[in-house]
Amino acid sequence: MNTRLLTIGQTSEIIGVSIQTLRRWDNSDKLSSIRKKETGHRYYKENDVENYLKNNLKDLFRLAKNWVFNKKGLEPRSDFYCQDSSVFQARLIKLENELSKLKRLGRTFPLISAIVGEIGNNSFDHNLGNWPDIPGIFFSYDLKKGKIILADRGQGILETLKKIKPGLKNHQDALYTAFTEIISGRAPEHRGNGLKFVKDVVISNEISLIFQTGNAQLKIQKNDSDLRARKTTANFHGCLSLIRF
């Protein structure tokens, strides 16, 4: 068992909430700390923090969001972090195996592992050698709740798609194009059209997707025919997605 102790500052960075919030949670026993003296500093058992994260997917999504929005690039915790595509591939196989055990999905489970694979690999394929700060992706899931989260601190859709469509004006245009327009040109870089595949799978199945890049967000669900990317107030470089099924 891992009994390493974390400071309140480290815990705050890992969970993605303020130190004040952690103090409040400590007082209400939501996440208890340890103090060497009654009035001393708060410490947290690493195991307690891990368990807290595993049991609170809402917070996992917030964690991913904080990670991509944070001005300072930090590596995510190792169990959510795929630093290269081989680590992602190994975790994708694990996910596929776990999805296959969910009876409610029946023979549709490979569609979910396929769209996760496309979103994750899209991050690697379009940022290899060009990561602005932290290479790799954040990848976590809670299959009981039917939620999967992927995020990257890459260049974002606009920057990478501009190489093929220089006329793109903003993140909304780029996001819409990525999900709807077939790009068959092979030069100057290979395009997977993976996000069109993701959209096709989502609109034909009991799956929903929220995808954010820059200051644009797209929500897709079953039977959607009119996709619209909306502008968000906050802006970040990279991509953030939440798949529900």
Binding site: L92, E96, S100, P110, S113, A114, G117, E118, N121, N122, D125, H190, G192, N193, G194, F197
Partner: peptide, 11 residues
């Protein structure tokens, strides 16, 4: 084959 995707398939 369990999971097949356009990125691998295209290549």
């Amino acid at each position: 084959v369990v999971t097949f995707t356009p990125s691998w398939g295209d290549e």
